[in-house]
Design a binder for these strands. Sequence first.
RNA 1: GUCCCCGUCGUCUAGCCUGGCCUAGGACACCGCCCUUUCACGGCGAUAACACGGGUUCAAAUCCCGUCGGGGACGCCA
Length: 503
Amino acid sequence: MAGNHQVRVRFAPSPTGQLHIGNVRTALFNWLFARQRGGIFILRIEDTDVERSEARYETQLMEDLKWLGMDWDEGPDVGGPYPPYRQSDKMDVYREYAERLIREQKAYYCFCTAEELERDRAQAMAEQRQPNYSGKCRNIDLAEAERRRAAGEPAAIRLQIPERPIRFHDIVRGDVEFSNEVVSDPIIVRSSGMPTYNYVVVIDDAGMKITHVVRGDDHISNTPKQVAVYEALGLPVPEFAHLSTILGPDRERLSKRHGATSVANFREMGILPEALMNYLALLGWAPSGGDRELFPKDELIKEFSLQRVTPSPAVFDTEKLHWLNRQYIKQSAPERIRQMGIEILQRAGLLPVSVNSNVSGWANSMIDLLAPYVDQLDQLPEKAKIIFSNDPAAALAVPENAEAFNDKGKAVAQAFAKRTESESPLTPERFKAIMDEVKAETGAKGKDLFHPVRIMLIGSHSGPDFNKLIPLLEDGSKLELPVHVKNVRERVAEFMAVLEQRA
RNA sequence: GUCCCCGUCGUCUAGCCUGGCCUAGGACACCGCCCUUUCACGGCGAUAACACGGGUUCAAAUCCCGUCGGGGACGCCA
């Protein structure tokens, strides 16, 4: 394909806060589209809102994108042929274009005051009309307007919307048409001399030779205004693709009150980046056939297509994200999960700040054992409670557990206790032998045999395999850890004390 | 209020453009069974949807109109 047909897309966030999940999805679709088509993905930081923009958010935003696995070909850090990629502050260019529009009578000075406009708007609403600009300054003679400005009267510049419908093509929604009646002449330069967003964004996008504008559908109503700017300036109009909104479970736009909504949140929770990317891609896009869910990055790039993006809004479903995350945890190299797990356990105060090889070896086996049980890695400390804490009273307070210690269960507990008080350390082999003896002595088998023992050891009748659990308890008890791990003998002794007392 | 967008299982969606292959497919969740001396994992299975009403047609989830419902935009914010 010839170079001049090359796809050029951009993600243009404002560094005013944490990168929101909806915005990353927009970034992702831009990126996937660019990579799929062998195009250019551009990062442009919109920090014109000086009051709210912060450098740390910009850094964070770039880290978040990288963490997710995205890269950009042009941007504030890597440069590119059409700078600037940070400030879209090209005042002279904006002014020059605005002057040209005035000269060509495609734009005009507007002397209306804010109060006047507000009054008109309120009246239109009251009369159930579209609150459009009246157009009262449209016919002020240019010479007259210049005279008033020279006399110090403040004036904004408005673009004159043509007397015909404005159409544009949207890859997701097809042809979209807005009647010119509903598109007010937009202000492109404020009376303060500052250009407005709808004007600036067009010049910036055109300047960067953007071929496809992929963004959230909250911009769809702005699009006719922007198209009018392109046309007035004689600039080529790009293709558009407006992505639907991501909703919370209550079908309201996803926001902070729905819980985790920023990339940073998911990262801290121990969601793997490939799982998040996969999930986000599936929100609004599906492959033809729609029968595959697992899409690693490379597969997404291969399969993605903007034409297949759905126009309807999607509810964010944490359960499905969790499912994908579990899939990727299982597929992932064990070392990676171990390392992440150790950091999380350290933060929870269960592992020392610096781990020696004895501790890390032990921690690794523990993480290997527990990781398949979690939806997100930050659940590890909670799951590790079975190893780090031992509370017989609490365990017996659960009716279901207490029931396991009927006469037969109690006999099992006593027989087991009798054999383990001298058995230390306990190996899995020895454990098995003991269980066989207990079985012979008490006649208990199956659940009757194993439930009491498991409750004694970890306070619950469900949990990981004994063969792996026993060594973890025995080895852990010998390590210097912030929280002492009790071995089997200690656990059984404590448990029996409480059990006898209750009887 | 006006305009725009959207409307398939509880959720994400395939199918819709190019009507018949749809007895509407897949996935998550839920439920059941199997595996496992428990739980989880895994395997198998079940329940579950074309918003409603009119057309057009031999035939409509698919095309047209209307209604209802949801979301968004209506700024000298971005």
